[in-house]
């Protein structure tokens, strides 16, 4: 057998094996093997991510202001907490106004239970906007759980492995979030462009959308809990010949500097199979 034939034989065999595994994976038969292989890979990934993050912090921060940096980060988290509180209070006030007119403002909202997770990596493919966190099914996480930071919505868990999970960011073009505009009191759908830019689509043409107003999750569709901040309107695109208007959104979360996130564990999203027609 000459060199060329032997090369062709190796390539053909490997292609058949790969395609076979691809089909097994699509059918879900490869999940146990993937879980088994993911465990050591994710453990090493978490170990490396921790050190890389520490080195990155050391290199990017001036060393003589370490204590100031701690103080700044404490104040930043305090500001973020207060901003969150203000957003919550504004939303409550707007809601109360509507509900009071209906003589039914009693509404109970269960406190969110959450679990903190470290961000240990990003999708190696530039086509997918997702992150890896160091918690998985061993920590009782499941697919569809919302992921947030103190600043707002990050995304939802797309895949769960024993010790890690993949979180689909809201900037992924495949993600769509039902949102509401805080002042206009109208619903829309948050969609992402391929370059990560966010916009709210399906806004009624008659609605007056204000630049700067907050975008919150609406809770419609039961994919995310209601009233989680998503971002702020930065521009409005209204054309008379279109059915709906669109608005550009500046996300409240900085997706390039995510280190720790919170997974809301007591929210039960409707499984996709049940929502299908």
């Amino acid at each position: 057998m000459n060199r060329s034939n032997s090369r062709l034989l190796v390539a053909g065999t490997l292609a058949l094996i790969t395609i076979g595994i691809m089909f097994l994976s699509i059918g879900g038969y490869f999940t146990p093997v993937r879980d088994f292989l993911s465990r050591p890979i994710n453990a090493v990934q978490a170990w490396i991510a921790l050190r890389v993050s520490a080195i990155h912090d050391t290199l990017t921060a001036p060393r003589d202001v370490a204590s100031l940096q701690a103080e700044v980060s404490r104040l930043q988290s305090e500001v973020a907490r207060l901003e969150q509180e203000i957003i919550g209070l504004r939303e409550q006030a707007a809601e109360a106004e509507i509900l009071a007119s209906l003589l039914n403002y009693a509404r109970s909202q269960p406190e969110s239970r959450s679990i903190a997770a470290n961000v240990i990596g990003r999708d190696p493919s530039p086509f997918i906007r997702s992150i890896w966190i160091d918690r998985g099914s061993d920590s009782n996480l499941s697919q569809g759980m919302p992921v947030v930071t103190e600043r707002g919505l990050v995304g939802r868990i797309a895949e769960v492995f024993p010790t890690a999970s993949r979180v689909q960011l809201i900037t992924d073009p495949e993600a769509a979030v039902n949102v509401t505009l805080q002042l206009a009191r109208t619903d829309g759908v948050l969609v992402a462009e391929f370059n990560g830019e966010l916009s709210v689509d399906l806004i009624d043409q008659n609605t007056e959308v204000t630049v700067g107003e907050l975008v919150l999750t609406s809770g419609l569709g039961n994919n995310y809990p209601a009233d989680i901040p998503v971002g702020q309107i930065i521009n409005v695109r209204r054309r008379d010949y279109e059915l709906f208007q669109q608005a550009g959104v500046q996300p409240s979360v900085d997706f390039d500097s995510l280190h720790i996130v919170l997974v809301i564990t007591n929210f039960q999203p409707i499984p996709l199979e049940l929502t299908a027609p």
């Binding site: 390539a11 490997l14 292609a15 790969t18 395609i19 595994i21 691809m22 994976s25 699509i26 490869f30 993937r34 292989l37 993911s38 890979i41 990934q45 990596g121 999708d123 190696p124 493919s125 086509f127 997918i128 997702s130 890896w132 797309a158 895949e159 993949r166 689909q168």
Partner: peptide, 16 residues
């Protein structure tokens, strides 16, 4: 294993 793309896609493309 670390990507959200269909499992095996990277392997097949790298092989090609």
């Amino acid at each position: 294993l670390l990507s959200g793309l269909p499992f095996g896609m990277n392997a097949l493309i790298l092989l090609i």
